[in-house]
Nucleic acid binder design. Structure first.
Lengths: 230, 230
DNA sequence: CCTTTTGTTGATTGTTTTGTGACTTTTTAA
DNA sequence: TTAAAAAGTCACAAAACAATCAACAAAAGG
């Protein structure tokens, strides 16, 4: 009897599947495979899985449809795998609190780390989730809606705090202007608004806000949070 | 004489109740059952329970109403059982630190584990044992429904006292307008009511009610109690 | 039945936030 | 090296928000 966590890999690229399987099995995961949506559904009928790694852009848009189907029938965390950032909007519409998404350029180590993170988060309840995000100099107390720099509280506006929380929840992940606009400006708005908002956050959290090290800009793409959880 | 923990199961689906009862009795829990809100209230009148497992979506919205009633009369940890994620907002408004939330796809083993976790957490907290909340200048005697400022009793209206007690029980935690409306105004009502009520409490507990230090506002979010337990 | 207490609503005032435009600086690539 | 594009800064005005006072309605108590 195997008591390990089971992960279902769904990707039409066999090489990727095999690569990921090796990594995951090294980490004591039980791995199931599927190369298209139909196969995935078959596997899902016969097996109980803990988490699914899903390529969104398989032939025939079927990745998204598969996801929709799963969302209707069960509540399994999904890790979306996507080559392009543009699909993000669609994915966001389908994803739930336990989900995550990864760009294909990510290393297998990163993917494994994300899967572990998702499972850790999912197994726990809302109340059990760690609510203090500690990055050393910067600490976010989500429950108290408070940010502290070097121990002392610093006031953030609602939008600032929401933005910062999102960044802090997903360190080292790039958020594009479009993603941020979608999420915090209802899709309508100017890149400029993002820039200004980021600037205001930086003023408060950076040592030298002219040379930001905590929220860095990825030229032509967006922003990334560089903090490391303690 | 049975010295075990007592769990009340409330769900209109008898199968689920029976399934859960078997699992819980295997784990040496004392189990009480109810198939609707009315029955649940009857059971609650006659028995002391340690924890309640409550289906939120029973016929007639009665799950949430039942919860509201319990929250007004006693402080028992509730494990919310819900089929969908959408109910989360309402639940969050009613739940407290000790509570938890489970989706219906969870296995019985998971549910049992969660119940144990909730009881472990709940049993530890000494907040429940002490009936006097002492913040120095302000002392709340929750049982006696009495508040004292600098030793002398001050009159609070029922709503004022309930609000203040909630804040005092969970210092530094932000309560949003929505959460407060859910809990004290049956979900219907105006933000304004909250503001005014807070204003009246502040008049009584703050040194300078123009510059509140005990109940502070978190812009665009809600209120937070800043007192420190002695 | 009247008085008192308690809760809600409206109007007003003062404060905080936030998007925008003008302008500067940095980065990239030719 | 330079020009174009992207990012950053700053200040200002409009919009959103909170606090307060006062008036009103509803409930409770005698």
């Amino acid at each position: 009897m195997n008591n390990n966590r089971t992960v279902l890999l769904v990707d039409d690229d066999k090489e990727i599947v095999e690569l990921m399987r090796d990594y995951l099995e090294d980490e004591q995961f039980e791995v199931l495979e599927a190369y298209n949506a139909v196969q995935a559904l078959e596997v899902l009928e016969r097996n109980r899985i803990d988490c699914m790694l899903l390529d969104v852009m398989m032939p025939g848009q079927s990745g998204l449809e598969l996801c929709r189907h799963i969302r209707r029938t069960q509540d399994t965390p999904i890790l979306f795998l996507s080559a392009r950032d543009e699909d993000m909007d669609k994915i966001r519409g389908l994803s739930l609190g336990g989900d995550d998404y990864i760009v294909k350029t990510a290393t297998p180590e990163e993917v494994v780390a994300r899967i572990k993170a998702v499972l850790r988060r999912y197994g726990k309840s809302d109340t059990e989730l760690k609510l203090e995000l500690d990055f050393g100099r910067l600490v976010l107390d989500v429950k108290a809606h408070e940010a502290r720099i070097d121990g002392s509280p610093v006031a953030f506006s609602p939008k600032e705090f929401e933005l910062l929380s999102l960044f802090a929840e997903y360190p080292r992940q790039v958020f594009t202007y479009d993603q941020l606009l979608q999420r915090f400006w209802e899709g309508i708005g100017d890149k400029h608004s993002v820039t200004v908002q980021i600037g205001r956050i930086r003023e408060k959290i950076e040592v030298d806000h002219r040379k930001p090290t905590l929220i860095t800009n990825v030229w032509g793409v967006g922003y990334r949070f560089e903090g490391v959880r303690r």
